[in-house]
């Protein structure tokens, strides 16, 4: 069955190539750039465009694993709390005299551990859905962060730590460089490797792929651990940008991330969507927000614009999916008969 799903990838035609959602996002990006440079004289210059990425890329690291998770029909809403907890642990350890490098490693470990715990619960108790588990851990992880730091803030990091959030590599923000490198890595991981194909297989038909020998549990563990790890990376950048941290940081990041992934064309109804789409969506939302910010649009208008953009774009994606749906349904029925 898994081989059949893999062969689901259609043959290449130019028409199909240009009908991809990613082109739509690129078009959207071009439109946003055009409008932004028309409405604000401050948008179209190198510093603005690169510095803007510093403001929205921190949470974008979580987008990578979230794409995989949502392709597998799961979700992780604990990532914001995971980021908060890892940030707090890092700052607390450093303030307790641990060298900064070790504190950063601890931050990554805590993040990965939080993610692993989510994955472990999901694998151990298969009938639990990811919404339940991550909703509970969302409260729990942030709760632990409050227990550790109470009403204090922690910070006073060494000067070099601010490089993460504020530094440049030859004129390009460090965060942008790392994001691009990781984006290439994750695109390759999802689109070109066996693990990636298996993630799609699980998303298309979890039961069938389990029967056909895909190690669903291992993949789930891996992906959720990655989500925790990326949340920790987000925590490092966020903490570096703030220079200090509190238990209430990264609040509601999960919803922003899910919005980016959804705009990226990832539909959770069955293993559809590409990493590249989500990466583009990060920039679409980021620059849209930045542009509207440059003309000082009130916060409530921004909310409405982003909400409508999300719904409209997903509606479009959805029409693409539903057109292909009968085909898939037929396959599903077939699969049922086989099993």
């Amino acid at each position: 069955m898994s081989t059949r799903i893999v062969s689901n990838i259609q043959k290449f035609t130019w028409k199909r190539f240009f009908l991809q959602w990613e082109w739509m996002l690129i078009a959207l990006l071009v439109i946003i750039f055009t409008i932004n440079s028309n409405i604000s004289p401050y948008f179209l210059n190198y510093t603005s465009i690169t510095d803007a990425t510093m403001t929205f890329l921190d949470k974008a690291f979580i987008v990578f694993p979230m794409v995989m998770i949502m392709i597998m029909r799961e979700i992780d809403i604990s990532v914001g709390s995971t980021a908060a907890l890892s940030s707090i642990v890092m700052a607390t350890l450093y303030n307790a005299g641990v060298p900064m490098v070790i504190a950063i490693v601890a931050c990554l470990l805590v993040g990965a551990l939080c993610g692993f715990f989510n994955g472990y619960l999901l694998v151990k108790y298969r009938e639990l859905s990811a919404v339940i588990v991550t909703l509970s851990t969302m409260i729990l992880y942030r709760g632990i962060a409050y227990m550790i730091l109470e009403d204090r803030s922690a910070g006073d990091f060494p000067d070099w730590f601010s490089y993460f959030g504020w530094g440049y590599v030859g004129g390009i923000p460090f965060i942008l460089c790392l994001f691009v490198v990781l984006a290439i890595g994750f695109v390759l991981l999802l689109q070109k490797t066996t693990i990636g194909r298996r993630i799609y297989a699980v998303g298309s038909n979890p039961k069938a792929s389990r029967f056909s020998g895909v190690k669903v549990d291992k993949i789930k563990l891996l992906v959720f651990t990655l989500a925790g790890l990326m949340a920790a990376i987000t925590a490092i950048f966020l903490t570096s940008r703030m220079g200090s941290t509190r238990p209430n940081v990264a609040n509601m990041y999960e919803l922003d991330v899910i919005a980016m992934v959804a705009l990226g064309g990832i539909s959770t109804v069955g293993g559809k969507g590409k990493m590249l789409g989500a990466v583009l969506a990060v920039f679409v939302i980021g620059y849209l927000q930045f542009g509207l910010g440059l003309i000082n649009i009130p916060a409530q208008m921004l909310l409405i614009v982003i909400g409508i953009l999300l719904i409209v774009s997903v509606t479009v994606t959805n029409f693409r999916v539903t057109r292909k749906a009968p085909q898939r349904k037929a396959k599903k029925n077939q699969a049922k008969k086989v099993s």
Binding site: M54, T55, M242, G243, S244, V249, Q289, F290, N296
Partner: peptide
């Protein structure tokens, strides 16, 4: 986080002054 984003936008607009009612005592320093 929200305030940092807004301040970055204001810096890009080259405003003359920024007056802030802060959500955190230290977090806006950078």
């Amino acid at each position: 986080e929200g305030q940092i984003q807004i301040i970055e936008e204001l810096i890009s607009q080259q405003v003359a002054s920024i007056t802030i009612a802060a959500n955190d005592y230290d977090g806006l320093e950078p």
